[in-house]
């Protein structure tokens, strides 16, 4: 089996004539954290949604563990071991924290008690609030719940869409340290971020996407020190 858990080859996605993703190819190495950075509307979310089967691409190939998963339903893709933590958290507000977590394990027929206690160990706050409805949690707690819910399907690849969106800087640090912990426990992470600084520091490999095309790629710290990336995504202040 190849080193790449996920390979995307010449992926094209259109939304009513508008090209959202244009011939993008990228690889995700098994056991690594890979990040896609880029401005709003660059097509990052669309790539993740194509992988999870919510959006239907025009053409291209999406290989997961060497097998083409393009055209499968979201249900089949979750069963294969890919989960998406959607943008804006999207927890189920009227369900309790525990019910939310159970929804993450919806397709599993086996016993998931171990995963539940694993999630509670990662996020002790969720165990304290397991009977509270998810809508009453703070933004950071909801993000933790969204990540925990995704982990409940015991994925091989977890894809996160803007996990730092709208969170306080301290909470963002927590979330990123959790992402590292999850990765150290053997789950491959594909991460989308607008907080390029934080994302590039955390990741092993990064891609820069502009209006549907990959313009740069490289290891995280290399991109972090690249003048063009600095200028476009990290702000000039870092030079001073």
């Amino acid at each position: 089996m190849s080193d790449n858990i996920l390979e995307i080859k010449t992926l094209n996605v259109r939304f009513g004539g508008i090209l959202a993703v244009n011939d993008i190819s990228l690889d995700v190495r098994r056991g690594k954290i890979v990040t896609l950075i880029g401005a709003n509307g660059a097509g990052k979310s669309t790539i993740l949604r194509s992988v999870s089967g919510i959006v239907k691409p025009v053409h291209g190939e999406i290989l997961f563990e060497g097998e083409n998963i393009m055209g499968l339903t979201p249900e089949q893709i979750v069963k294969k071991g890919i989960t998406l933590v959607p943008e804006g958290r999207r927890v189920f507000p009227n369900l309790t924290v525990l019910e939310n977590l159970k929804m993450g394990a919806y397709l599993r027929k086996d016993n998931y008690d171990n995963d539940l206690s694993y999630v509670y160990r990662l996020f002790p706050r969720l165990e304290e609030r397991s009977w509270q409805s998810a809508g009453t949690l703070s933004g950071g707690e909801q993000q933790m719940l969204a990540v925990g819910r995704a982990l409940m399907s015991s994925p091989k690849l977890i894809m996160m869409d803007e996990p730092s969106l709208g969170l306080a800087p301290l909470v963002v640090r927590d979330i990123f340290s959790i992402i590292r912990t999850i990765n150290e426990n053997g789950i491959t992470v594909l991460l989308i971020e607008q907080n390029a600084n934080m994302a590039l520091k955390t990741c092993d490999y990064g891609y820069v996407i502009e209006t549907g095309n990959i313009t740069m790629q490289g290891e995280g710290d290399k991109l972090l020190n690249d003048e063009r990336v600095k200028e476009a995504y990290l702000g000039k202040s870092r030079n001073g």
């Binding site: 979750v78 989960t83 397709l107 399907s153």
Partner: peptide, 9 residues
């Protein structure tokens, strides 16, 4: 959307 992402048909 979240329900679909969790694999609910």
């Amino acid at each position: 959307i979240a329900a679909e992402a969790m694999g609910i048909n």
